[in-house]
């Protein structure tokens, strides 16, 4: 178990980028791939893409981001990579359906964002779990996938 207890900087920081570049050429940059949910955590145990058993343990004021560098020495680096966030995009048929969809998403405590006339839900789990809940509105056309 390798304990990683501080964020050294971002991979894009000029002071780190050159060293990371050199290490990557030598195949010595390991990636910790985190979901949009897991990146919020301050403690987390997971394996890197090379199989290193990593234990992230950050102070409360620190926050992981895409590109956070958690280890860097002459032999290797470990960098956080945030997985692409998938969204379910929904388009209501009319104003009444929009009101209902907004109420329903709130009642489900889903995080949402708006893009024009679509409502987008970041997926924290299988898409089918969300579609199951939305089935009545999708079935009668009040809402369709955008």
């Amino acid at each position: 178990m390798l304990i990683l207890d501080r964020i050294l900087g971002q991979a894009s920081d000029p002071a780190l980028a050159d060293r990371l570049h050199d290490l990557s050429h030598a195949g010595q940059v390991e990636i910790l791939s985190l979901s949009g949910s897991d990146i919020q955590r301050h403690r987390l145990r997971l394996a890197s893409d090379r199989g290193t058993d990593c234990a992230i343990r950050l102070e409360r004021h620190q926050q992981l981001r895409n590109g956070s560098v958690l280890m860097l020495d002459a032999q290797r680096a470990i960098v956080v990579q945030m997985q692409d966030q998938q969204f379910l995009s929904l388009q209501p048929r009319d104003t009444a359906a929009a009101l209902e969809l907004g109420y329903f998403a709130g009642n489900m405590h889903w995080t949402v964002r708006f893009a024009g006339d679509t409502l987008q839900i970041p997926l924290n789990g299988p898409e089918t779990d969300y579609l199951e809940r939305l089935a009545p509105m999708l079935a009668d056309g009040r809402v369709q996938r955008a």
Binding site: L2, D5, R6, L8, R43, E59, R60, D73, I78
Partner: peptide, 19 residues
């Protein structure tokens, strides 16, 4: 088990509480 060799010199005195 090992601790990462990081650029900053001082390790945390106590890592705080897991929640």
């Amino acid at each position: 088990m090992s601790t990462a060799l990081n650029a900053l010199p001082l390790p945390q005195a106590h890592p705080g509480a897991a929640r």
